[in-house]
Design a protein around this nucleic acid. Structure first.
Lengths: 129, 129
DNA sequence: CCTTGACTTAGAGCGCGCTCTAATTCCTAT
DNA sequence: ATAGGAATTAGAGCGCGCTCTAAGTCAAGG
């Protein structure tokens, strides 16, 4: 009933984490199974309890997903992060590669959008008559 | 051999059209079945012959697809075009709606890309030590 | 005690956009 | 005449990223 009344249990329920992060409950569990999220605490009941760190990580996931990184790539990145310090070069390479892909895609979308906008202005002229 | 009255072989084969347009042969046929392409000439053998107009239309399809318009939306647009003149307002509305969606998505990608770039510069510092 | 409701899991299902297969026909060259 | 290669069709298959279902556990309220 009350979503957040666990004085001894720190952390958000999966429903609250979903609401806070903008990712659905189903998707949060899916990400965990897919190896994108790990180490989420559990209450005595076995229910997940998301920490602030978990939420911050989910925000990273969102940035990667919404810029089009495939699940596989994100999993690779997550694995590097969980390995701990020492592989920063690899993480950097992965992110730089992604950055290049996103920039290329942005450029292409801008080009094609310009085409669409030219078509729009043609129709605007026609309709204005 | 009978004299050939009108050699209607004045278009590209599907293989050539694929090469010229950057869309696969399979996808060209799929687009036709899906209602995105219509009115392609046929040789006496039944083989497709793509005209310059067809290629120009395929270029439009590419612009819409690569800016993320779903097949359904493109089909709607195609139907409006095939209906002929008189529905320019509808076409315009459809394209304007698409433009808004693309711009919104571009803005979001830029935001999330900026986040990734901040992460990159953090790793660059770490690696530079 | 019993119901309600949020949670758990493994696994099935879905929508999208291709991508490929199989069986067949047709054209061209040797 | 025959072999090869390119085209045709309907329909199956695939990879992705969710999204949902079924069956069950658990805690609290009436």
């Amino acid at each position: 009933m009350e979503p957040n009344t666990a004085p001894l249990e720190t952390g958000l329920t999966i429903a609250d984490a979903a609401e806070a992060s903008g990712v659905s409950v189903h998707t949060l569990r899916y990400y965990e199974r897919a190896g994108l999220i790990g180490g989420v605490d559990r209450a005595a009941s076995g229910h997940r309890r998301y920490s602030e760190d978990d939420l911050a990580w989910i925000e990273v996931l969102r940035c990667l997903r919404e810029t089009g990184m495939p699940i596989r790539g994100i999993r690779r990145y997550a694995e590097l992060v969980w390995e701990g310090e020492g592989n920063e070069r690899e993480r950097l390479a992965l992110l730089e590669e992604h950055r290049a892909a996103v920039r290329a895609q942005l450029a292409q979308v801008r080009t094609h959008l310009a085409f669409v906008e030219r078509k729009i202005s043609i129709y605007e002229e026609k309709v204005d008559e």
